[in-house]
Design a protein around this nucleic acid. Sequence first.
DNA 1: TTCCTCCGTTGAAACATTTAAACCTTTTCG
DNA 2: CGAAAAGGTTTAAATGTTTCAACGGAGGAA
Lengths: 112, 112
Amino acid sequence: MTKMEDFQMIERGFVQTQAILVALGDENRQSIIVSLLKAGCDGLRVGQLTEQTHLSRPAVSHHLKILKEAQLVSIRKDGTKHYYAVRPSKNFAIMQQTAAIIERLAEENESK
Amino acid sequence: MTKMEDFQMIERGFVQTQAILVALGDENRQSIIVSLLKAGCDGLRVGQLTEQTHLSRPAVSHHLKILKEAQLVSIRKDGTKHYYAVRPSKNFAIMQQTAAIIERLAEENESK
DNA sequence: TTCCTCCGTTGAAACATTTAAACCTTTTCG
DNA sequence: CGAAAAGGTTTAAATGTTTCAACGGAGGAA
């Protein structure tokens, strides 16, 4: 892999993962993610998340929207009940890959 | 690794990587990182970054401060000249590790 | 239909972030 | 010494984010 290719990977990686980075950078959304993961495959509803976090219902709804747009969570609807769960996103893998490339380049810098 | 341990890893990972996530979530700071990586081990000065990005000098200075606090860049001072470079951070590895655990748990959810 | 539950959305206020102009500090050079 | 060069800091304005209260809509039960 040439440096040129590395930089292109990083630039594309940044574009594709920006929404995830912003979404996961917020403490409240981190709490929501952890709650959802603990709940497992059944997921949780907005009301249940409101209980488990110290957030109001509209706030939970707002943060879920951001997580949804970052494609980190999915919804399953059963009547009026909306179950949210963390879902695997290919952008998640891209984030790891991008981070790995940056780390490698940074280490090359250090050793010279 | 038990689920309990997974959740603990994620929670600690979130705390340790929050600054990085926020720092890398911003488009301007992403540009700065890319410019610095392209510059290699010598690094770049504030003035040079001002030319390469469409940011003013105080703006560059501001974003560098955030990147510095997230321990993503280092400074090397030579007289009045300050050279910034991307440096390897152990939090970078933690970010990848945390992402990997979440991804795995999300995939387990999906398959049930 | 009517009521109730569960969520989403809107609008406004509170709060945080980002930016540029002006100013200050430190170092170097004449 | 004084002037210039390179960056950092402060302040205030613009912008963006987060929050809650109030409202609206859709589905289920009687």
